[in-house]
Write a protein that binds this DNA or RNA. Structure first.
Lengths: 228, 228
DNA sequence: GAATTTTAGTGATCCTGATCACATTTTTTA
DNA sequence: TAAAAAATGTGATCAGGATCACTAAAATTC
């Protein structure tokens, strides 16, 4: 079992910290567990904490008054989220929900501000990470604006494969936790349309779908759907 | 006429700097002018500079292979952009184009990194600003996902009014530089649909449109279109 | 492991907004 | 200021994907 300090070191934004600072950090962090489907925070909530995932899976989503959900992204081990409210003191801009049982570390604003004032490298790491997030969010907009349903499904699956795909003899395999409805909500499509496109990709021979296991057989053809 | 240092002070992320630092900063900055419609940088270009606008107007947009444009946002006096490539060294994620003749200051990566390492407050200001941008980009996604054409137009106009609207006796007035096509491209609609909705809002009495001057007569009703 | 609930697949239909086509207005250029 | 070019408005049509309705399968509960 890793010590608290060793596991902090695995978190990219903190990897540059000295043992001493890590120790300080570990003391101001709170450990918390969330059950599957438990809401971690809601869109609009006031918030001043940053959440780091030690294990599990969390979805960040927008929900409208008709309960239509759009999943912006998912986070897993060693990822952090919630930094926006931490930094600009605004309300939570999206809802965070545990998709699996999740173990998290929490750090509060005042402590965090102190940390980055003492450690410019943490600030820089954070800036780089935020910049990356802005980049993927921009790509998200690009998806929603320019891609048709095929592109949206392809983009969703290829992104997931990037994150959790494992090379097998026949292709890239992934074992999903997310439901079809959730995959559709990540793609910006209705569940029905998502299912139809998934079927079509199978007919074309790009995919093999067995329940929650999806195998990407022909990545090249799939990628063709997401060329801008 | 403001001195270079005085005008740097007006830029929010630099406002906390001392005279001495401002002077250093002013020496590493490059001044450049762009003509109307000139491309400042293109999506995909390598980039390691941050651009600060002294005067003028710049649009940041995504363009697909069919020349469909989506305008993510516009920047004007004292705003900065291009920070993403500066921070994570990735390619430009969108295209920046001058909508009006524009005067800009440019700062390059190495100098910038040096600056924020010496000035944690600049890093913090930048983090807050990036966080804000992530927030508005997230709102953008929300628009695209949940709003119908009415909502999209309302959101676009209300945002513009926020930025450049002036109170008149009859309502909020704004003098636009952007073309109808560009307004449509900000809303994620076709030019035709945008025009139709604009007309409909006029019929309803929410708007008065006289060419490039738009008057918001009934903000309340317009806002009703963008309630999530 | 049977019963219940939830999730998923699929055909039929509908609707919103894109596209096309063209007239009109505005802007630019000579 | 006339002519050309570009931007804008608007009717007609089209199409992609949402929604509805239902069956089938999977997961959960007791």
């Amino acid at each position: 079992m890793l010590t608290k300090i060793q596991s902090l070191k695995n978190i990219p934004i903190f990897s540059s910290l000295s043992e001493k600072h890590l120790e300080e950090l570990s003391e101001i962090m709170l450990e918390k567990t969330y059950r599957k489907n438990q809401v971690i925070f809601d869109q609009g909530d006031p918030g001043n904490s940053l959440i780091i995932i030690k294990s599990g899976l969390v979805k960040i989503s927008l929900v409208d008054s008709n309960n239509h959900e759009f999943i912006i992204k998912t986070f897993s081990m060693n990822d952090f989220f919630g930094e926006m409210s931490l930094l600009d003191c605004g309300p939570r801009s999206a809802t965070a929900t545990a998709v699996e049982d999740t173990l998290a570390l929490i750090i509060f604003r005042d402590n965090f501000i102190g940390l980055i004032q003492k450690n410019p490298s943490v600030a820089l790491g954070m800036l780089t990470e935020l910049s990356n997030r802005l980049r993927t969010t921009t790509e998200n907009i690009s998806n929603l604006t320019f891609f048709d349903a095929y592109g949206k499904v392809a983009r969703c699956l290829l992104d997931l494969a990037d994150k959790i795909g494992k090379k097998e003899e026949t292709g890239l395999a992934m074992q999903l936790t997310l439901s079809r409805q959730e995959l559709a909500n990540m793609s910006g499509l209705s569940r029905e349309t998502f299912a139809r496109i998934l079927k079509e990709f199978q007919i074309r021979g790009c995919l093999k779908v067995q329940g929650k296991k999806i195998l990407i057989l022909d990545e090249k053809i799939m990628r063709r759907e997401i060329v801008i």
